Amino acid sequence: MTRLTRATALLVAATALSGNAALARDLTVVSFGGALQDAQREALFKPFIAQYGPLTDEAYNGELAKIKAMVEAGDVTWDVVQMEAPELENACSDGTVERLDWDKLGSTKDIIPAAVMGDCGLGSILYSVVLAYDHAKLGDDGPTTWADFWNTEKWPGKRGLRKSAKFTLEIALLADGVAPDEVYEVLGTPEGVDRAFAKLNEIKGNIQWWESGAQPPQWLAAGDVVMSSAYNGRVSTAIKEGQDFRIVWDGQVYTVDGWAIIKGTPNLDSAYDFLKITVDPKNQAVLSTAIPYGTSNVNAPSLVSPEVLAWLPTAPDNMKGAVHQDDSFWIDNIEELNERFNNWASN
């Protein structure tokens, strides 16, 4: 073999090894961190590792910019990501995530309809944003509605709200007396949007904005806020850990999050294997027991104790006065309303 031929062969071998190394990267799953991701490690990640091999997990705050950048650059380092429904649909529309091959996931007959999230998402959890407060600080005379959340005379101090139009505008309208089943009818008009922002203006100086689901329980425990909107599972976990928090279920805004596969992942087959793990009823029961979010497999609730079921957003008593977040509304309006919200919040 000539020196040139040998060099060429070495280059080809090195390139092949490099490509194999890229393909050999562990499956990387990305979620929202905190107590949720701790629960997912136990309920989903461990079963995947036991059956299929290594898995790496990372956390993010729901922003799609990083995902879109890695797809456009052809340097995909995340494989499966949990997303809220409107963001998932938008990512599907712009080609940032894969369109799912449902045949690879088997039958969807045991999955609730809301968990088949368009062409690109597989529902993972049903959760809600609720009003939470520290009973140790407010006692038995704590808030019972979102209207109470606005009562800064009776309960002075900072209030925590999520730094996004989604959830926050619904809460503002509920606080202003809009009936749960009329929230999107009102929010779907320019006058309704103005009404929501006008309501937020009333307490703007008392708002402390949260961006991570872990922040509201931390702020409540530290006394940084007197009450807060919060993900129900994060508050329930804090209660299990000894905090004397209370959840106000009246006016909860509930929705479904889904798993999506990032476009161009080198771990496509493993990504599908992970999605199958997430909808196994036994795994979902473990997840709901670890953090009380609702399940997407219809067979999972029967595997969960009655004590746990009572803490789920879908428990009958908890659904009174609930608002089912309108994904279609947010898919159509999220960019415009987030732009207005961000401009308002920064001034």
Rank of each mutant, 00 (worst) to 15 (best):
I171Q: 07
D94H: 10
A260G: 01
T96L: 03
E89N: 11
L36M: 09
K66Q: 10
A196Y: 03
K166F: 01
Q215W: 09
D101I: 01
A7R: 14
L105Q: 03
Y184D: 13
W219R: 14
M319S: 08
A14R: 10
D176M: 12
V80P: 04
I203A: 13
V248C: 05
V256T: 11
L312Q: 08
V323T: 11
A300M: 08
K66C: 04
F329G: 12
E84V: 14
N342M: 07
V81P: 03
F32Y: 13
L173H: 12
P281G: 05
Y184P: 12
T96D: 02
L275H: 13
D57P: 08
D273K: 15
I239H: 09
N267T: 00
F48S: 01
E211M: 13
A24S: 14
V308T: 13
K282N: 06
E170L: 10
T5M: 12
L173T: 09
R195S: 10
F197Y: 15
A136M: 11
L100C: 06
R3T: 06
P86E: 01
N333H: 12
D119A: 15
Q252T: 09
A221I: 02
E63V: 03
E42G: 06
L122D: 00
V71N: 05
L220W: 03
D181K: 01
L88Q: 12
L4C: 07
I262V: 15
A115L: 11
P316T: 11
A165V: 09
S228E: 00
I67R: 03
F48Q: 02
F32E: 02
G160P: 09
L88G: 11
A50W: 02
A65P: 06
N343E: 12
T144D: 03
I67M: 09
V76L: 05
T15Q: 15
L122K: 12
A230F: 02
V256P: 00
A221Q: 15
A315S: 13
F274P: 00
R6V: 05
L44G: 02
Q215H: 10
K240Y: 09
I112T: 05
A39I: 11
D38V: 07
N333Y: 02
G177Y: 12
Y52P: 00
G213R: 11
D38A: 07
L105C: 05
E339N: 09
E191M: 08
D250W: 10
L268M: 13
N20W: 15
A214P: 08
G233L: 07
G95P: 04
K166L: 12
A16G: 06
S212M: 13
D257T: 15
A114V: 13
K46L: 03
A238D: 12
A91E: 09
A39V: 13
D269L: 02
D224L: 10
V12A: 10
S31P: 10
T237I: 04
A260T: 15
W146A: 01
Y127W: 15
E339R: 13
W78V: 11
L36V: 12
F48V: 04
K276P: 03
R246N: 12
T8K: 11
Q252E: 12
V81Q: 01
N347V: 04
S305G: 10
K66R: 08
R162W: 04
L169M: 09
A322Q: 09
I239T: 08
V183W: 11
D75P: 01
K137Q: 14
D134P: 04
G34M: 06
T168C: 10
G106N: 10
K68C: 07
V298N: 09
V253I: 15
I125V: 15
A221N: 14
D134G: 00
P86I: 10
N347S: 14
L287H: 03
R234E: 15
